[in-house]
Design a binder for these strands. Structure first.
Length: 307
DNA sequence: AAGGAGCGCAACCGCCAAGTT
DNA sequence: AAACTTGGCGGTTGCGCTCCT
């Protein structure tokens, strides 16, 4: 018996996702989490294949995704990892937080491949291309760099032969360095840059009245257990708290307030949803405040006038 | 200004592996 | 053990944008 298609394809929509569809999917996952992608379209009211929903979420809507071109450091990591792992994009992506396999694959095919070829390196084997003339035509500086890279690569290959094939400690080290760099970069960002970090023009922005919260009866906020009613009531209380915020952790000097509620942005376990899961920030500019709010799954940016 | 070529990227397709019945 | 389901992966496609002539 043949394999069944992942979904009934009759009457399903294909092609680019609309903001409305994105909103439906985000709201659904915000409430129900990621489970049973096959059922997601029906339950979320989408005329899409479950697979399509999963791809849309993992490659585009996930709040922990980085945006924009890969940095030089990330690109170097991709090249190093590709030399070790080949076209195993998901494995490569797992070493680059916030990047998807699809994104890396696209970047490889459109940018890095060409770059390597230009440098006289075969993107498949990571070894010099047979046509040595190409290398000789490179400017002297480039040649020197190329030679250094090749020596380095050779050294790496020798080291690899002494260790297990899946040993990625070096990669992890690079990764740690990258995280440190990111941290420094984040700390030195001004508030405009901070705001720009949230790609509100690409991810549909939800207005406060559009946020769907689980439809449960309100309960006392004194209980911090993980019921959805706490989520909704605490959310509004926290929002109010934000507006009145005058705590000791303020840094008014650069008009940025970061609360100490910061928690991990990504967490599949919805049982941990409670007040402590929210991350807040306020940026004030031109008579308006912008609040970014992130919970386990989603970042929202709400702008309101300063009162 | 027009249109053809090339490029970049989101989305799709088919296959595979692991888990479940 | 076989049939089936589901999620994940890598290759490919097609659309929209930009650049060039």
């Amino acid at each position: 018996m043949g394999r069944q298609p992942c979904c009934d394809k009759v009457g399903l929509k294909k092609g680019p996702w609309t903001a409305e569809e994105d909103k439906k999917l985000i709201n659904f996952i915000l409430i129900h989490g990621q489970c049973c992608w096959r059922a997601v379209p029906k339950l979320a009211g989408l005329l899409r294949c479950g697979k399509s929903c999963r791809l849309r979420w993992t490659n585009y809507l996930r709040p922990d995704l980085k945006r924009g071109l890969l940095s030089e450091h990330e690109e170097k990591m991709v090249i190093d990892l590709h030399a070790q792992l080949g076209n195993r994009w998901s494995k490569i992506a797992s070493h680059l937080p916030g990047r998807t396999d699809n994104e890396i694959k696209n970047h490889w095919n459109t940018h890095i491949k060409k770059k390597l070829k230009k440098m006289g390196i075969d993107p498949l084997t990571h070894k010099p291309l047979p046509n040595a003339n190409d290398i000789q035509n490179q400017p002297q500086q480039k040649q020197q760099k190329l030679q250094n890279d090749q020596e380095k690569q050779q050294q790496q290959e020798e080291e690899q032969s002494c260790t297990a094939a899946d040993d990625t400690s070096e990669i992890d080290q690079i990764n740690e360095e990258s995280k440190e760099e990111d941290k420094v970069e984040f700390e030195t960002m001004d508030h405009d840059q901070l705001l720009n970090g949230f790609c509100i023009d690409e991810v549909p922005l939800l207005e406060p009245h559009e946020i769907l919260v689980p439809n449960c009866a309100p309960s006392s906020s004194s209980t911090s257990s993980s019921s959805c009613s706490n989520l909704s009531s605490n959310f509004l209380e926290d929002l109010q708290y934000l507006l009145d915020f005058e705590g000791s952790n303020c840094d008014y000097s650069n008009n940025i307030i970061i609360s100490n509620h910061s928690m991990g942005l990504w967490d599949d376990d919805f049982s941990s949803w409670d007040q402590e899961s929210w991350t807040f920030g306020i940026c004030k500019k031109g008579g308006k405040s912008s609040t970014w709010i992130s919970c386990n799954l989603i970042c929202l940016l709400i702008t309101f006038p300063i009162v």
